[in-house]
């Protein structure tokens, strides 16, 4: 089980969280103006990165808030957590 550092509550066990998938996918202000492929890319296409992945979590059985995390999907180690709306933090040594 992962130990996840909620930016509001600190380290809590994974079962208190729900996973929100890839982060920084921005919904268009007016989806009706998008062509089908752009809308499809937003709805369905995912980076599914092997390595450092920016993803959303929600502390659903705690404070209830969404936040973002950088996690290495080859080790499951968390490299950073940050609040929704903040930019993706740069990692020392670059994003391996």
């Amino acid at each position: 089980m992962l130990l996840i550092a909620c930016p509001y509550c600190g380290n809590r066990p994974e079962i208190e969280f729900s996973y929100g998938g890839e982060a920084h996918l921005v919904r268009a202000a007016n989806p009706a103006l998008l062509d089908d492929q752009t809308w499809t890319d937003f709805l369905y296409m995912r980076s599914n990165t092997k390595g450092v992945y920016a993803e959303r979590w929600r502390h659903v059985r705690g404070c209830g808030r969404f936040f973002n995390a950088l996690r290495d999907t080859t080790t499951d180690h968390f490299l950073a957590v940050y609040k929704t709306g903040e930019p993706r933090p740069a990692l020392d040594g670059g994003d391996a």
């Binding site: 089980m1 992962l2 994974e14 729900s18 996973y19 998938g21 993803e55 999907t73 080859t74 499951d76």
Partner: peptide
Amino acid sequence: DAYTSYTQRGALH
């Protein structure tokens, strides 16, 4: 497991 991963392992719960 709830999250994407390439580790070929998962959590005990």
